[in-house]
Simulated assay, not measured.
Amino acid sequence: MFQLITDSTSDLTKEEWTRDGVEVVPLNVEFAGKHFQDRLTLAPDDFYGLLAESEELPKT
């Protein structure tokens, strides 16, 4: 038996994760001193919005 594990920056959709039984580990992201977990507390669209607004690049 085996388990597929990936981080949340993979290009898999939530439907693919669920269908294929892939375990997803959220990537930690820091923007201007604020901490987020990718796809849990920071949606992809929000990430790109912050990226466009921020003068600093995010840290992982």
Rank of each mutant, 00 (worst) to 15 (best):
N28I: 10
Q37H: 14
K34T: 11
A43F: 00
G21K: 07
D7P: 06
S54K: 02
D7V: 10
K59Q: 08
M1G: 15
T6R: 05
N28T: 15
E30M: 09
K59G: 05
F47Y: 15
T6Y: 00
S10F: 04
L27S: 13
G21P: 07
E23D: 13
L57P: 04
M1W: 04
S8L: 04
L40N: 11
W17D: 13
V24S: 14
L51R: 02
S10R: 02
R19E: 15
V22I: 15
L50K: 01
V24L: 09
D46Q: 04
D46S: 02
L51A: 03
I5T: 15
S8P: 12
P26S: 13
D20G: 00
R19G: 06
S10V: 08
Y48H: 13
F47G: 01
V25R: 15
T13G: 11
T6G: 11
R19Q: 15
A43G: 00
E15G: 10
Y48D: 01
D45A: 12
T9M: 13
F36W: 11
K59N: 03
G33T: 03
L51V: 06
V25E: 11
F47P: 01
G21C: 09
Q3R: 12
L12P: 05
T60N: 06
T18C: 06
D7W: 02
L40M: 13
F36C: 08
Y48W: 09
G33S: 07
T13N: 05
M1C: 11
E56H: 04
P58I: 04
P44H: 05
